[in-house]
Nucleic acid binder design. Sequence first.
DNA 1: GGCGTGACTATGG
DNA 2: ACCATAGCCACGC
Length: 112
Amino acid sequence: MSIDEQRIFKKEVIKLVSLIPEGRMTTYGAIAKALGYPKHARYVGKILNQSGDESPSIPAHRVVSSSGKLSGARAFGQLLSMEQRLEAEGVEVRKGKIVDFKRIIWYPIKRM
DNA sequence: GGCGTGACTATGG
DNA sequence: ACCATAGCCACGC
């Protein structure tokens, strides 16, 4: 992945995450795949991690692991945790996992 | 260039 | 359903 590809990838990740509807969620892998880089799920996580400082407005809490776990919960403040943010928009969470994960998952559509 | 570290994933028991 | 394992790849040291 070249420097240019990375730059575009980061921008597209932010764009795609912003499109996730309220009350739905998707996965790191789905985002990576939609952008044409199926092996870069971890990189998506890293981007969202640093996006917390740069663009706090993006709904990063709507991105979970492929098993439905809230793997990024530690990156959110405890005042408004990742779980609380999801519950607040109607997404049920139990034991750190999305309850009806496969039913409410949102699959991004590649565009460009 | 080697090595460890992740907001990851698929697979097998 | 849970846990361990092995790939995976950018990144920092």
